[in-house]
Computed example of a mutant assay.
Amino acid sequence: MLIMENLMTPAERRERISAEVTERSGISEAMIERVVRAFYAKVRADGLLAPVFDARIHDWEPHLSQMCAFWSSVLLMTGRYQGTPMAKHISLLVDADHFDRWLELFEQTACEICPPEPASQFAERARRIASSLELGIANANGLMLGIGERFRRPQEGKKP
């Protein structure tokens, strides 16, 4: 087995790993696409999140395709996504409330579409990603969050 692994190209090795993850988890490219499309349909109808996305995304198909590649890389380790998520999110005017709503919709969607174990894997990864992005955005706004602290933007008309 080790000799065969040494003879594999990186692409073949990644494909084998992805197939093993799919076999173990039940998560497939088709499942990822169903979750991504259903989730973003909810986002586009959400009063808090829709304006954030509408300000940036005008053609949804490329974004959905990119999000399928992202989640494929995250969950199946396919390496399909080559972007920089933090750079894309750092300038957004979002805070803990946005991340909480994003997670609520994402976890709800995963539970509606996936069996319990894959839904749990989607949700666990989403929580890590949301936490990382929230910390990065807070840091970009001059705040270093402590354990358990959340990033809250001052609301217009209110004193911080």
Rank of each mutant, 00 (worst) to 15 (best):
M1E: 00
L7W: 02
M8I: 01
T9G: 03
P10T: 01
P10S: 00
P10F: 00
A11H: 06
R13I: 01
R16H: 13
I17T: 03
S18P: 07
V21P: 02
V21W: 10
E23Y: 03
R24S: 13
G26W: 04
I27F: 11
I27A: 07
S28K: 04
M31R: 02
I32A: 10
E33C: 04
V36N: 06
A38Q: 13
F39Y: 06
Y40P: 07
A41H: 07
K42T: 00
K42L: 13
V43Y: 08
V43W: 10
A45C: 09
A45E: 15
D46S: 04
A50W: 02
P51H: 01
F53R: 07
A55I: 05
A55N: 08
R56F: 10
I57C: 09
I57H: 05
D59M: 08
W60K: 03
P62F: 03
P62W: 02
L64T: 03
L64C: 05
S65M: 11
M67V: 11
A69F: 03
A69E: 14
F70T: 07
W71P: 09
W71A: 04
L75C: 11
L75M: 12
L76Y: 05
L76V: 11
L76S: 09
M77Y: 02
T78C: 08
G79P: 09
R80W: 03
Y81E: 01
G83M: 06
M86D: 03
M86Q: 13
K88S: 13
I90W: 06
I90H: 04
L92M: 15
V94L: 08
D95N: 09
D95I: 09
D95C: 07
D97W: 02
D100P: 03
D100Q: 12
E104A: 15
L105E: 04
L105K: 01
L105V: 12
L105R: 03
F106Y: 15
E107F: 02
Q108A: 15
C111N: 13
C111S: 12
E112G: 04
C114G: 08
A119R: 00
Q121K: 14
Q121G: 13
A123D: 07
R125M: 13
R128W: 07
I129R: 02
L135S: 14
L135Y: 12
G136Q: 04
G136C: 12
G136T: 11
G136W: 07
G136R: 01
I137F: 08
I137N: 04
N139H: 15
N139I: 03
N141M: 04
G142Q: 04
G142P: 09
L143Y: 11
M144Y: 11
M144G: 12
L145E: 11
G146N: 13
G146F: 08
G146S: 14
R150M: 11
F151E: 09
R153N: 08
Q155C: 08
K158L: 15
